[in-house]
Amino acid sequence: MTTIILCPVDGSEHAAKGLALAANLARLKGAHLTICAINLAVGGARGPTIKLWTEDEAAGLLAKAEAAAIAAGATDVATAELVSSTAAPAIIAYAEEIGADQIVMGTGDKRGLKRLVLGSVAAEVAGQAGCSVTVAR
């Protein structure tokens, strides 16, 4: 039985599709939904850590996602900002930390050479997570 759903968001259209599905599943199953934003960071060892978003931008992204989930009927919603240099391992580790039964996420429309070169966070999460993963398109 699904009781804790994790949904990573980044403000993109494909992430919004994953969020809509996650919110609907949380509503239907009476599950807790945690929405996380992976604030990608570079640097740090010998220089400053530079994040993709400022704290205000990350908070705004999460607030917008939380409002959308509640509007879609999810009633038990939490948010978290994760700072990491890589998205997929951060998502997987956080899912384990909160005891998520399911990860629901969107995926872009990368195909062929683009996907080989760029990879896919959703594919990496699906292949390595210790819980069920649902990918929305």
Rank of each mutant, 00 (worst) to 15 (best):
D76S: 14
D76A: 15
D76M: 08
D76P: 00
D76W: 01
D76N: 15
D76Q: 15
V77T: 11
V77S: 03
V77P: 02
A78G: 04
A78L: 05
A78I: 00
A78T: 15
A78R: 13
T79F: 02
T79C: 09
T79Q: 06
A80V: 09
E81Q: 14
L82N: 09
L82R: 12
V83T: 13
S84R: 13
S84M: 02
S84E: 12
S84G: 11
S84Q: 10
S85I: 04
S85D: 15
S85C: 07
S85M: 12
T86C: 01
T86N: 12
T86P: 00
T86A: 15
T86Y: 00
T86K: 14
T86F: 00
A87H: 07
A87D: 08
A87E: 08
A88G: 10
A88N: 11
A88I: 05
A88D: 14
P89D: 10
P89M: 06
P89S: 11
P89Y: 02
P89H: 04
P89N: 05
A90N: 08
A90C: 10
A90T: 07
A90F: 04
I91G: 08
I91F: 02
I91P: 01
I91V: 13
I92D: 05
A93E: 15
Y94H: 15
A95V: 02
E96D: 15
E96N: 11
E97K: 13
E97Q: 13
E97P: 00
I98S: 07
I98Q: 07
I98T: 06
G99M: 02
G99I: 06
G99C: 03
G99P: 01
G99R: 07
A100V: 08
A100Y: 02
A100Q: 09
A100R: 07
D101G: 14
D101Q: 08
D101F: 03
D101Y: 02
D101L: 04
Q102V: 09
I103N: 07
I103R: 05
I103F: 01
V104N: 10
V104D: 10
M105L: 14
M105W: 02
M105Q: 08
M105Y: 03
M105H: 07
G106P: 04
G106F: 03
G106N: 08
T107K: 12
G108R: 14
G108I: 00
G108K: 11
D109K: 06
D109C: 06
R111H: 14
R111Y: 11
R111F: 09
R111T: 15
G112T: 09
G112M: 06
G112Q: 08
G112P: 05
G112H: 06
L113C: 02
L113H: 04
L113I: 14
L113M: 13
K114L: 10
R115I: 05
R115W: 04
R115G: 09
L116S: 12
L116D: 03
L116P: 01
L116W: 13
V117R: 09
V117G: 10
L118Q: 12
L118I: 13
L118A: 14
G119M: 10
G119N: 11
G119L: 09
G119I: 10
S120Y: 06
S120Q: 04
V121T: 13
V121N: 03
A122T: 09
A122N: 07
A122D: 09
A122C: 09
A123N: 15
A123Y: 01
E124W: 00
E124L: 02
E124P: 00
E124T: 14
